[in-house]
Amino acid sequence: MGIYSWAWTGLQIDFKSLQNSGGYIADFISRLFPPDLSILDVAWIKLLETIQMSLWGTTIGAIISLPISILSASNLAPWWLRWFANFVQNVVRSIPSIILGLIFVAATGLGAPAGTLALGIYTIGYLGKFYQTAIESVDLYSLEALKVSGASWFQIAQYGVMPQIMPSLWGYTLYMFEYNIRAASVLGVVGAGGIGFELVNYIRGFEYNKATTMMLVLLVVVTAIDIISSQLRRRLEQQ
């Protein structure tokens, strides 16, 4: 209770402005319709770019996350390595994706490469933790059995850990891919490519009807990918 009231006072909510806000929201939404379908082709191209960014960003992030997660896992790494690897994870996780976008736009210029790299780094903060949790939840006895039979650290990782974590690793990675499509849309705001760039430009230019088209296309694709990937994940869980 104390925490909730503390959080509430921090919000400094002004009820009078809340009463008026309903009208503004209604007005804003009414200006979004009808969607201007003439820009569907632009939307489609930008959307593909967003998906491509997410695919590569997730892949880069996943490849870097795997060793980091192994070094952070309590059942595989000594405490000092774990401390260091967890610290790296925390540092990455505490940087907002927008800031990463700005950093890489400064480094590689406006466009999709900056967004892809930003997503790659951003992904580490989450997949590193997810992978680590998966590794740590592996059955302890199964690893001890391999230890007693004389298997090396590498063999325990290969035969003991990998088969047990692969299904959830794929599941988490798919989820991250899905999430990164939305994150990529946000990155466009700082000029790091993808559909967000166009979206923000239309809104800034008061071309709300075009912005609506962009959002609708995004909605369709996010929904479609959500359906596909949740089916894939269910199949993985059954394995």
């Binding site: 001890e144 004389g150 298997a151 088969p163």
Partner: peptide, 22 residues
Amino acid sequence: FQGGGLIPQLSALDNVLCGRLS
């Protein structure tokens, strides 16, 4: 071990072969 301590995703044969990893 109690419950076997096998790798549930590996086949019975692969689990047996794990005893020879050393």
